[in-house]
Nucleic acid binder design. Structure first.
Length: 435
RNA sequence: GGACGGGUGGGUGAGUGGCUAAAACCAGCAGACUGUAAAUCUGCCGCUCCUUGCGGGCUACGGAGGUUCGAAUCCUCCCCCGUCCA
């Protein structure tokens, strides 16, 4: 009777509920776990994602990590790629209709998505599914019948629809279908548990209802809090620019993570690391009591997160680099290098570009022998426009070899070999080598 | 199908003939202060040219035309969104 396959239910529950915003319903999760233990049959747990953007950031990892927790406990983790539903576009959160994606976009996104997801989930233990498998096969009759299982009034209860209705903003009919179609995912997958962000709560509840309509037991809906972005206010998202991408360079991630406010740090600890809750509580107390410097606590956080994606060594290096650049205020050890060569005809060629992981794009400009600094930086792609570069100089944000440049007219002599270390603004460092 | 209201810079949103590159707020950027924090303060915040100046040129208020010395502002047509009626 006692299966050794799973840890004790009590343990599982505390592990699985850590960080969760809500479990609907608690008792159902417990009994499902007990049932799994009794039968030896793992729970089918899924997370559905829309491959709307090719890159995933830390905000996405909150729910992924939760899926992994189920995997850790021996349950079946299903990563569902909403390739079909993405072509409809989930209205969630955005108070506007999302542009549907094309098949090609979806495919491309799905591919890069998976690579990134496997930084968290164990590829060997993850069941990857695409909802076009079943949704793509439904006939319009099937769709109509599915729609018959739900009422408009209930659909309009959804916060997003309601507020758009109140504000006289458009709602397209196809958006109403989204929760219903994804509900069918739960049915097709015979799901026991579905994980989602709190903003998905409405959808998850519809999924439960529809499963019941199809004669299945309702899945447990486990919601995770939404990760607040670097600005400390709004949801982490790419379009708001307040995000940390999981493929970003370790040093970049480190810098970004260190810029969060002290208060925000604790939810990052909770949602992005595996530090046990009691440890986090203790750290918090130490910071409050003054025995632990908040900066040190934050560095430890950044270190832990980065180690998860890039390994211990990279995390350590990023940490050292951070201290070097920002505490000791030195130029970073590894800055992007731009090698320039002046051609006989007066054009300038970028012969090599290192760092940033960019492919070396050969470029030629007619800059002349002595371009102004702002011009050069724009040509190198460091700054978007000349106006902006001029502004940066006027505001004292440009340093060459440690000296602040104050005159926008200052020129660079490209006629003889030289090297410059450039600091543009707070974060951008680069080295220019004239050959 | 009819009546009415609306479409302004990255976002919200003022502006109903010149003083408007377009208020205000948010976001963003830079500087100061710091723990690269956060908060705060100051400045900037379409592009471009230089003689860097309360400078010149260009582009911009859904789209296309038109009226006018001059239009985000007025007229015509079109596109899009919402409300009410059917």
């Amino acid at each position: 009777m006692t299966s050794t396959k799973f840890p004790p239910v009590i343990e599982q529950l505390s592990y699985l509920k850590r960080g969760a915003a809500e479990v609907i319903r608690d008792e159902e999760l417990k009994s499902k776990l007990e049932n799994a233990e009794r039968t030896g049959k793992p729970l089918r747990v899924y997370l559905g994602v829309d491959p709307t953007a090719p890159d995933i950031h830390l905000g996405h990892t909150v729910v992924l990590r939760k899926l992994k927790h189920f995997q850790d406990m021996g349950h079946t983790a299903i990563f569902l790629i909403g390739d079909f539903s993405a072509m409809i576009g989930d209205p969630t959160g955005q108070s506007e209709t999302r542009p549907p994606l094309t098949r090609e976009q979806v495919d491309a996104n799905a591919k890069t998505y998976l690579d990134q997801v496997y930084k968290i989930l164990d590829p060997k233990k993850t069941e990857v599914r695409y909802n076009s498998e079943w949704l793509g096969k439904m006939s319009s009759f099937d769709v109509v019948r599915l729609c018959g299982h739900y009422r408009l009034a209930r659909m309009l209860e959804r916060e997003d629809f309601r507020s758009r209705l109140e504000k006289n903003l458009p709602i397209s009919v196809h958006e109403l279908l989204y929760p219903l179609l994804t509900a069918y995912d739960a049915v097709a997958l015979l799901s026991d548990v579905e994980i989602g962000a709190t903003e998905q709560k409405f959808n998850l509840l519809v999924h439960r209802d529809i499963q019941r309509e199809f004669g299945q037991p309702s899945e447990v809906a486990l919601t995770m809090p939404i990760l607040v972005g670097l600005d400390g206010e709004r949801k982490m998202s790419k379009s708001l620019g307040n995000y940390v991408g999981i493929t970003e360079a370790p040093s970049e991630m480190f810098g970004k993570l260190m810029s969060i406010s002290d208060e925000l740090m604790w939810s990052y600890y909770e949602l992005l690391t595996d530090f046990p809750s009691p440890v986090i509580v203790r750290l918090k107390e130490e910071v409050r009591g003054g025995t632990l410097h908040p900066m040190d606590a934050k560095m430890q956080l950044a270190h832990a997160i980065i180690a998860g994606f890039h390994g211990e060594d990279a995390a350590k290096k990023a940490s050292e680099e951070f201290q070097r650049v920002f505490r000791d205020r030195l130029a970073p050890e590894d800055v992007p290098e731009y090698r320039l060569r002046l051609l006989p005809n007066g054009n300038v060629i970028l012969s090599k570009k290192r760092g940033d992981g960019e492919s070396p794009v050969p470029a030629v400009w007619k800059l002349g022998t002595r371009p102004r600094w702002p011009k050069l930086l724009v040509e190198l792609g460091i700054i978007d426009s000349t106006s902006e570069a001029d502004r940066l100089v006027k505001q004292g944000g440009l340093e060459i070899d440690g000296l602040r440049l104050s005159d926008v007219k200052t020129e660079v002599d490209l006629s003889s070999a030289a090297q410059f270390v450039v600091k543009a603004g707070k974060k951008k460092f680069l080295k220019i080598i004239v050959e």
